[in-house]
Design a protein around this nucleic acid. Structure first.
Length: 175
DNA sequence: TAAGTGCGTCGTT
DNA sequence: AACGACGCACTTA
């Protein structure tokens, strides 16, 4: 209860702005969009990182760059889902199985974890996903290929899907 | 077509 | 007990 949720906060510059990666002793436990107001209080000294953290950071940066380009990651750092409830961890696990360029409905995800009636709760778990983009909650759509919601801002959901080559979505037209 | 209402359902707070 | 990144049936314009 008194343990810190993460140990290192490292900025990841990308063509879309500066993301923030959070690491626990178990792996990557959070990823924040450039627009996220929760910024690190103090910049971490990147020069003296433990080697395993640096390796995770390099993997994260490379995977993020590929993901933002609409390509599947080659390697991912270990993902630490321990902040979530059992249900949330099941959902996040299921999300990570959705391949680049593919989508699933909230109902399909619910069925995938053996709880087909919990489709609405799946939406809640997606919204609580601590590692967006790399844990592809943007690939979960509402029924009939409607866009649904996105906690990071719907423009991100649209953008990520389009970069993966998914354009046949209602409401996808930019305004 | 588009927009609005109501209800079932379930995990989270 | 109330609230959602849902889904479906149904009404109304």
């Amino acid at each position: 209860m008194n343990s810190k949720p993460y140990i290192f906060e490292l900025a990841i510059p990308t063509a879309d702005g500066e993301f923030l990666a959070l690491y626990s002793e178990r792996g990557l436990c959070g990823l924040r969009f450039p627009s996220d107001t929760r910024r690190p209080k103090r910049q971490t000294d990147n020069s003296q990182l433990p080697t395993h953290i640096r390796r995770w950071y390099d993997l994260t940066a490379k995977a993020l760059a590929r993901a933002l380009a609409g390509q599947p990651p080659e390697d991912l750092p270990p993902l630490d889902f321990s902040s979530g409830t059992d249900f949330q961890q099941q959902v996040w696990q299921a999300l990570s199985l959705i391949c680049c360029g593919q989508t699933q409905s909230y109902g399909q995800v619910a069925s995938a974890i053996g709880n087909p009636k919990a489709l609405r709760a799946v939406g809640g778990a997606c919204g609580a996903n601590p590692i967006p983009v790399l844990v592809p909650c943007h690939r979960v759509l509402a029924a009939h290929h409607r866009l649904g919601g996105f906690s990071g801002g719907l423009h991100w959901k649209r953008t990520l899907l389009m970069r993966e080559g998914i354009g046949q979505i209602g409401e996808l037209g930019d305004k």
